[in-house]
Amino acid sequence: MNILLVSSDNNKTSGAFLCLVSLAKYLIEEFDYKVIVTVPKQGDGIELLQENNIPYYYVRSFSWITYNGYGIKAIAKTIFKKMAMLYNWRAIRQTSDIIERENIDIVHINTIFSYVGAVAAKLKHKKVVWHIRESLDKGFNSHIVNGKKGYELINQSDRVIAVSNTVLNEYKSFIHSQIFEVVYDGIDSKFYAPKHEILKKQPVVFACIGALVKDKNQLELLKSINKIKENGITNFKLLLIGDGVMETQLKSFVERNQLQNYVEFYGRRKDVDDILKQVDCLFSVSCAEAFGRTIIEGMLSGCLVIAADSPDSAACELIQSGKTGILYPLGDIGRLTEILRNICLHKNDQSLRNIAFEGQKEAMMKYSSLTNAEKIRDVYLHVCEDN
């Protein structure tokens, strides 16, 4: 089978791009599929494609997503996107040529941000699988430029895949239920660390991975860290892994509260799998998570994972609180502080190790890249059987 994977970015640290590379790799190696990737702009993601010998084309195109609201920034972006979508017809023609040249059977759109591949597939009468990995409204405060026509195009797909029930529920009023299903993302087995023992050394090492932006909510974690420090608990270190527009504000909070000896800013890293092998507890405190890639990375690594639970997050789908990880109510700094305090005081070390171990088993069984590729292959086979 010949698959065209259409990416909406070209960034080797992007979760969506990492999922695309992993899927392509397993489809080629495990199922002997021919897989071609298109990338829409210059970037470092192609390094991963080259490392894994995945063929690709550069097809310059623009997304159809703009900001919510009627502010100057939103209006300006909407005008730009409408103009850019005229340019996209060139990308549609290029993609159509690739479909024909490579004898593509299925065009797989990797995120809701890109639509060019779907139009090209329609012109060439090819099957379309469309992946939705993001919460546009809650996670990005954004929408499709022409939502009605956009969802009409998405609904012409042969299958639409949501990465969680949280995502499916957000879009179910726009996308036909008969073509819409959930397939959880898969995480590379390089994160699997079966010999990782937590809470054996001092200080206790915490980590939080993600862009330093408002919705990732790292400030909530820092406030809780500050509270335990004020109560005389100092046997910990927090690693903030990522960069973004909130970095200055977060660093200012750290300096203001004299947390420099306890919090380290690691920036964007390529060696997250190695870092997690030195971490006891991974925190995911986001306001909204369409899936929760870092949650599974932490679980696979053998870390104890503590995540914020909210209606807009898939964390509760991935974690059974008290069994495979720990959930706390988003915004409940008191509860988060209590969790941090108990960990640092080593009140329930063996119980917490057991939770981390069960989480690791669960992640390996349900959320490996191979499991994901097998389920996507099944989607392809069903699509090809449908007339």
Rank of each mutant, 00 (worst) to 15 (best):
A118G: 06
K81W: 01
F191K: 00
E255T: 07
K124L: 08
L352T: 04
G298P: 00
I3H: 03
T234P: 06
L23F: 08
G359V: 03
N372G: 07
Q260V: 15
E197S: 09
Y192G: 09
L219Q: 14
L5R: 08
V272C: 03
D378W: 01
Y87Q: 15
I333C: 13
V160Q: 05
L219C: 11
K149H: 11
G292R: 02
V272G: 04
F253D: 11
H346M: 15
Q260T: 09
S164Q: 03
Q249N: 12
Y67I: 10
I92N: 02
F140C: 15
S63D: 11
H125M: 12
L330Y: 02
C287F: 13
N2T: 13
L86K: 15
G150V: 06
G117E: 01
S301A: 13
D44Y: 04
S7E: 07
V37D: 04
F180K: 05
E264Y: 03
L153N: 02
D158P: 03
A74M: 08
E220N: 11
I112C: 06
S286T: 05
S7D: 08
D9Q: 15
N2A: 14
E100I: 12
K237T: 09
D349V: 04
E100R: 14
V383A: 13
V285D: 03
L381G: 15
N52H: 10
K277S: 12
K347S: 15
I179V: 12
K195S: 13
K270P: 10
G242Q: 00
S14Q: 10
P55V: 09
M246Y: 11
S63I: 00
R377A: 10
F140Y: 15
V59Q: 04
T95S: 07
P203Q: 10
C303R: 01
L49Q: 08
N103I: 10
G267A: 10
L300P: 00
K361R: 15
A16Q: 07
I376T: 07
T95P: 04
I161C: 06
K347H: 10
K237S: 10
A207I: 00
P311H: 09
F236S: 13
I198K: 02
S284K: 04
E362K: 08
K347W: 03
V204T: 06
Y87S: 07
V6M: 09
I275M: 14
L23W: 03
A315N: 07
S310A: 12
V379A: 15
S96C: 12
K138Q: 15
K138G: 05
F174S: 11
F206H: 01
